[in-house]
C-alpha cells in the first residue's frame, strides 16, 4: 500500500506549525500505524532531514503515551483502540492521511506531534490518591468490597491518561479523565472517606490548568481507548 501523509510539523510551543506532505510506499497491511511512521523517519534520516517527533512507548495500548489525531479522529476512527494498536490494513481504502497532535491549550505542542500533558499529573497531585502511607495498611481482607464495586472501580481505573478525551472535546474539558479517577476511588470503602474533598481539589486543579467544562457532547467516551463511560462524570457532579 502507498500513502500520502500530511503531517503537522512544529518546531516548538512558540513557533507556528504547518502541514508538510510526505509519501510512503510499499507498506504491508500488518505494519502498525507507528511502524509506518518509523519507516517515514528512516527515509528522512536517509535524506539527512530531522525526523518527525511523535510520542510512543509500550506499543501495546496500555502506557497511554501515543497521541495522534488521524483524519480528524483522536487515536483514529477505530473504537476502543490507542494509536499504537492501529494497523495499516485498517487504512486500505484511505491513501491520504492527515496526522496532527492533540489540540488543547492545556496540552501545548512541544514539537511536531508531541504535546505536554503535565497538566494531568498536576491534577492527580492535587488529590488523585488515597492518603495512606507505606506500612500503615491493614490486612488486605479486613475490609470487604462487593464484587460490583470492585468491578466498577476497575472499569474507571483502566484510564490510561492519554488525553484523547481532551483532544476531542469542543471545550477541551478533562472531565472524563478527572471523573474516572474520582469514581475509581469512590467505589472503594478505603477511598470513599476522602471522596468529596478529592473531587473538589481535582476539579479545582482542572480549572486552574485551563481545561473547559463538560457540556455533555459525549465525544470523549466514543474516542476513549479504554471505553470509560460518561456516567463517571454524573457521579463526579453528584459529589459536588
Amino acid at each position: 500500500m502507498n500513502f500520502i501523509l500530511h503531517i503537522w510539523r512544529q518546531q516548538n510551543a512558540e513557533s507556528l506549525g504547518d502541514f508538510v506532505t510526505y509519501q510512503v510506499d510499499n507498506i504491508d497491511g500488518d505494519t502498525s500505524f507507528l511502524e509506518m511512521l518509523d519507516q517515514l523517519n528512516e527515509q528522512l534520516i536517509e535524506k539527512g532531514e530531522d525526523c518527525v517527533v511523535f510520542d510512543y512507548d509500550c506499543r501495546e495500548g496500555i502506557c497511554g503515551t501515543c497521541s495522534l489525531v488521524i483524519n480528524g479522529h483522536p487515536h483514529g476512527e477505530k473504537n476502543a483502540t490507542a494509536t499504537c494498536q492501529l494497523y495499516m490494513r485498517d487504512y486500505a481504502n484511505q491513501n491520504e492521511l492527515w496526522i496532527e497532535p492533540w489540540r488543547a491549550s492545556s496540552f501545548p505542542v512541544i514539537k511536531d506531534l508531541a504535546v505536554d500533558r503535565d497538566a494531568f499529573d498536576r491534577i492527580i497531585q492535587a488529590g488523585g490518591f488515597i492518603s495512606v502511607s507505606t506500612g500503615s495498611a491493614p490486612e488486605a481482607n479486613s475490609q470487604l468490597v462487593s464484587k460490583d464495586n470492585a468491578d466498577n472501580a476497575f472499569d474507571a481505573a483502566t484510564c490510561i491518561g492519554c488525553g484523547a478525551c481532551v483532544a476531542v472535546c469542543p471545550n477541551a474539558s478533562a472531565s472524563l479523565f478527572v471523573a474516572a479517577k474520582i469514581n475509581h476511588f469512590h467505589q472503594l470503602p478505603q477511598g470513599r472517606v476522602e471522596s468529596k474533598n478529592r473531587a473538589k481539589r481535582m476539579i479545582n486543579q482542572m480549572e486552574v490548568e485551563g481545561f473547559g467544562s463538560c457540556s455533555n457532547h459525549r465525544h470523549c467516551e466514543v474516542v476513549c481507548p479504554q471505553e470509560i463511560s460518561v456516567s463517571n462524570i454524573t457521579l463526579m457532579n453528584s459529589l459536588l
Partner: peptide, 9 residues
C-alpha cells in the same frame, strides 16, 4: 495490604 489500601482494584 499496601496496594489494597491505595485503592488498587
Amino acid at each position: 495490604d499496601q496496594a489494597v489500601s491505595q485503592g488498587v482494584p
